[in-house]
Write a protein that binds this DNA or RNA. Structure first.
Lengths: 220, 220
DNA sequence: TATAAAAGTTGACGGATCGTCATCGTGAGA
DNA sequence: TCTCACGATGACGATCCGTCAACTTTTATA
């Protein structure tokens, strides 16, 4: 789709940022590397993989790799960031629609767990690490997603939807439960998103009202 | 203490497993490596550290290192496992004493967060990773600690202390909140263990009764 | 105590990976 | 068509990897 648009523009002599052949190969090389890395990480595990393994899985030269990424860590981050950027808008949208605590919490867990269940190649392959039994790594974009949740919580509190609790800790608790439950959910066959989401939602629906209240901000 | 006992035994000509000079150097070398690794990890970050960095921080030869560990990952695991083995008995003990849900949950979070606050060199240095913003790695002994929590929960359910909920998911939720909150707690100055423990405890005290109940096991 | 066997340490070595950079090929623009 | 500049290439020196033959120290025996 985008490609054909580029080609049309190109034939009209109209140059855009992505229309030139140079730019196209750059995008393609980047994708080639990321795709190869996904396979290699899944095959060998993240810890056991080195840069040369990734390069060997592409038709590119070693120097070219370093034009795009400076280490396997950067490749890994790019993969994770991509996933984070795919799911974050969905989460924000769902939470923005929420008109009750239950909707807010339930949709957050549902959306997240649904995503994880569908994308467990990403989520799980990373954890099949040689080093330790389990690993979790949060990249910049993932952490930014946490901050978005915190902001949404603050907003919901300000709107009177949520009680006035510690939004920072509540965000942490939601994140912790979400990731840990996702991990556990993937160990069960079949993956029951509903079951896991119901569990997490119930926990927070019961728990939120019991949380300590923050001191009220001094009114004008 | 143990050393003097060994020496006495030695002078009496009674050999034990740990009395020989060979065995003593082995224990000492292992500790030397672990101690050096702790410093180097804290200094360079886990990701940036390599085996040679650790070796250089000891007076030992490279070949000797490989007599004790076969990679930096194994060293890391040993450090983490040591910590896990230090805290797990405390947690079990506290939970065994519990006569109510509140005591069970509260003591679990308290003990864990107290430990983390006191030992943040271990807990935090690992996370000052070059690779990504945040990393969490669970070793075999840490995961075993999770299983202990699950067992204690099952026992508490069987004893009628807890409602009959999904112990596996509940364990996951507790673990997720504990680690995530610990991380967050360390970002605040001063580290307020009470505050964090109260938050987590309140969440679960309110939430546990709201959780879906498991189908009753068929009675005799 | 003397001495042989066993255990453990040492550091140099071949092999592999690291990131760089001079060279070259190809697309962009005139 | 021609020139220039951007980016791909892969060989290179530097570094790190894990091993192993030689050596040192402890242990066991007489």
């Amino acid at each position: 789709m985008y490609l054909s648009i580029d080609i049309i523009k190109d034939s009209q002599g109209v140059r855009t940022k992505t229309s030139g052949k140079r730019e196209q190969t750059k995008v393609q090389n980047r994708q080639t590397i990321l795709e190869a890395a996904r396979h290699v990480f899944a095959e060998l595990g993240y810890g056991a993989t080195n840069v040369r393994d990734i390069i060997r899985a592409t038709p590119l030269a070693s120097g070219t790799f370093y034009n795009y990424f400076k280490s396997k860590e950067e490749v890994f981050q790019a993969i994770q960031d991509e996933a984070a950027l795919r799911i974050r808008p969905r989460l924000r949208e769902e939470r923005a629609k929420a008109t009750s605590v239950e909707e807010f919490v339930s949709s957050t867990f549902h959306t997240f767990l649904e995503y994880v269940a569908g994308d467990r190649s990403n989520f799980h392959a990373i954890r099949s690490n040689t080093d330790t039994l389990r690993v979790r790594m949060d990249t910049a974009e993932i952490v930014a997603g946490f901050e978005e949740l915190r902001e949404d919580l603050e907003r919901a509190i300000a709107a009177g939807l949520f009680p006035n609790v510690d939004a920072d800790y509540l965000m942490s608790a939601i994140v912790g439960v979400a990731f840990e439950l996702a991990e556990r959910m993937l160990r069960r066959e079949p993956h029951n998103v509903e079951e896991a989401a119901r569990f997490a939602t119930a926990l927070f629906m019961g728990g939120i009202n019991a949380l300590p209240k923050r001191p009220l901000p001094i009114p004008a």
